[in-house]
Simulated scan of single mutants.
Amino acid sequence: MKSILAVGAIASATLLSLSACSSGSSSTAASAARPSTVKVLYEVDGTATGADITLETGDGTSQQSVKVPLTGKTSGNRGLTFVMQRGSFVYISAQNKGKMNPSFTSSSDFYGTVTCRITVDGVVISENTTTSQYGIATCKGTA
């Protein structure tokens, strides 16, 4: 009788173990179906003539002095695009250079505006604008 109970207990433990393994593998399969990388688009727009930007790339931090609107140097497309790991910290700040734009007629518009925007896989996750002479627009989030 003891050997029948022992065999029954071993069979039950094996079934529970197999059940736990199979439920774990389905959640692993679901997360594996999601791409591990995302497309991050950093944009700087506005009426200012230029901005100093700092941004987080897949390889670290980059600082540049740019014209507004920001365009890719080689592509000519609006903004800068990076492929980054899902869950990565994304960040851009854009400081208005504070140069007067002679085409503006109102004294409150002399220096223009600067807007930063971060888009991840086509969805805007952060956007901010500054309207002051040396103001800084900051955008951040998670890819």
Rank of each mutant, 00 (worst) to 15 (best):
S3N: 08
G98H: 00
T138E: 11
R117S: 04
N101D: 15
A6M: 14
D121C: 13
C116L: 00
T49S: 12
G112D: 10
A9I: 05
K140A: 13
G8E: 06
D45E: 06
S23L: 12
G98T: 02
S26C: 08
K140V: 07
S65N: 07
G135I: 05
T115P: 08
M100S: 15
S107V: 11
G87T: 01
T74M: 06
T54R: 09
G87W: 01
D52F: 14
G112P: 10
G122S: 05
Q85C: 08
S17M: 10
T47F: 01
G141S: 05
P102Y: 04
G46P: 14
T47A: 03
R117P: 03
N96V: 04
D109Q: 15
G60L: 01
L18D: 05
S23I: 07
L70R: 02
Q63W: 06
D52N: 15
S108P: 09
Y134R: 12
S88V: 07
G46C: 04
T74N: 10
Q95S: 13
Y91A: 02
S108V: 15
C116I: 00
Y42C: 01
I4N: 14
N101V: 02
R78N: 09
T47M: 02
S93A: 12
T37N: 13
G141H: 04
S108Y: 15
M1T: 13
V90Q: 00
Q133S: 05
E127N: 09
F82M: 08
K2M: 14
S106T: 15
S107R: 11
T119R: 10
A9M: 01
S88G: 12
I92L: 10
V83L: 06
D59R: 12
V66A: 05
A51E: 06
T47I: 01
G112C: 08
T113I: 03
S17T: 14
S31A: 12
Q63F: 08
V7L: 02
I10Q: 00
G60P: 05
T57Q: 12
G8Q: 08
Q64N: 11
I125N: 04
T105S: 11
A6Q: 11
A20D: 07
D59G: 09
